[in-house]
Design a protein around this nucleic acid. Sequence first.
DNA 1: TCAAAAGTGTTCTCCCTACACCCATGG
DNA 2: CCATGGGTGTAGGGAGAACACTTTTGA
Lengths: 241, 241
Amino acid sequence: MATKGKYIYEYPHPAVTADCVVFGYDGKELKVLLIKRGKEPEASATAYVGEWALPGGFLEVEKDKTIAHTAARELKEETGLRLTVKDFKEVGTFSDIHRDPRERVITIAHYALVKLAQVEASTDADRADWFSWNDIPHLAFDHDKILRVAFSRLKRDIHFEPVGFDLLPEVFTLPQLQNLYESILEVKFDRRNFANKMKHYAILTEVESPTPRRGTRTPVLYRFYKENYDRLKGSGFQLEF
Amino acid sequence: MATKGKYIYEYPHPAVTADCVVFGYDGKELKVLLIKRGKEPEASATAYVGEWALPGGFLEVEKDKTIAHTAARELKEETGLRLTVKDFKEVGTFSDIHRDPRERVITIAHYALVKLAQVEASTDADRADWFSWNDIPHLAFDHDKILRVAFSRLKRDIHFEPVGFDLLPEVFTLPQLQNLYESILEVKFDRRNFANKMKHYAILTEVESPTPRRGTRTPVLYRFYKENYDRLKGSGFQLEF
DNA sequence: TCAAAAGTGTTCTCCCTACACCCATGG
DNA sequence: CCATGGGTGTAGGGAGAACACTTTTGA
């Protein structure tokens, strides 16, 4: 095992990984998908065994078309979740010289938004789990920092794009939508103003309520009206919160 | 020369570079600093010799504390310009599998803003030159794409931070400031509204005019009032354009 | 009938926009 | 005195913020 290396370079090269911050929303709280670190078949040594971490892994130099492909591939391998390259948004590069004890590793962090109800079942529960944003365990490497930056990035993006709808089920209530925005932006809105704004934007369509029940008045169900949103955006319009 | 490599890995590693988009402003137009590619002492092969490109170069795995340090170091080596790590903002990762014909190279693009008058003299004119934004030559690799993304990133950032002042000399006129914003945002503002807004923000202080002349009325000189800006920002305030 | 959550409309204020005339300087 | 570019104020409209009561439903 002393000289099992087969890849030779004239100058030192770093290892490159892609890490994924996958956000979900259960109607009440923002959640993040984490994995429990075990043995890594492809790394020469293993670090942080047994700790929680962001899903992610090494760029396959000869195979991954872009680093986003690495993110998608690794997420599927580690959690079972299948997302497309387009679902990932780049968060940034984390390149601190000692961020990995084994060798120089720089990572490109990405985030993705998923409809929790539709993917919870398809995640590999042996290795992966969803954690509430306010109850995140200690993470391996600098993944706490990555998580914070990813969240601030989401917070910024939601001002300009209707990314919130990627987190909600196809059909949702106004209070759910408002609560989601409040969770991400860490503010409180007035119900009436929020409803007025949404009505004014005209990017929601009412859905025939299949009379669901709870211990309270039945809320109206809506669907995101993407065609209208695209038209508005086309005519130089900006969603603001 | 067949087996001069000394760095051995069990799995293939990509090369990693940092590229720099350095913006300047001459009072009239936005400019970008480019270098003419020559022989590269550190690369096993050389590509795009003689073409213009963004300054940048390889991460030194054992030396560069972060990728931003690579950017700062390479910029100095290639253009003579000394900037600090804090002057660089990350633009994004460009990782297309064939973006470099020699080997797999992923690059982390950065941008920086400089006060042109103060740095023009200290740039190494043999290898580097400033180009107007509207007159950029064809660039090596995917540097055209990087340039476009960096610009759109600047355009976004200027909405939230007073980055414009990093491009202007310490003392400037209101029309200069307005023209800069117009160049970056690619819009036109009404002079009076622009002045009103600036007066309202109260982030400029008038400077005793040392009576400079041109073929016209002498404009009032201003200085960026950073203390006031920081106070405003502290109390949850946002610069808008 | 009570508690819990959802729906709804109006007023006020502030900021953004549109807009035109006079002033200083150099040639 | 003319051309060029710089400085200045106000009125109107639209969007965001503040604000309270009624409705539905299950317990």
